[in-house]
Amino acid sequence: MKFELKNSLAPLSALSKIFEHPQTLCYPEVKSETVSGYRGFHINDLSTCIGCANCQDVCMNEAIDMIAIDKDKNPKNNSGCIPRIDYGRCCWCSLCTDVCPPDSLKLESECIWADDDANRFLYQPKDKPC
């Protein structure tokens, strides 16, 4: 193949980008838009969670512990237990939300949590209706 001068000069067209506005976001001043339906942190509507542990059974990473609830919020919750999730193990596959009978367990778009101790990543899903 013949090497043409054009092929050496054409890449310089990238220089035109100098005059354009940068396409990167200036985090944290500007944040990217959150998407509805993003598989982020868990939320659990305690007024409908029935404490059935379906979510615990399906989670193959054994990320979910069923722990005693402080104050009963749903009279239909027969076990008095609610899920708590080990975020060191969760892979956000959302199988647990798929199998939740009353659909109380959901994933929200929020997904940022920084900590200097990995052992703190035991997450109590926020009590939010969805």
């Binding site: 059935c52 722990i67 005693a68 076990s79 035991l122």
Partner: peptide
Amino acid sequence: FREGREDNLDVKEEI
């Protein structure tokens, strides 16, 4: 296992 997970309860027992 990560520490702090000992409070896991068996749901059938609790019911």
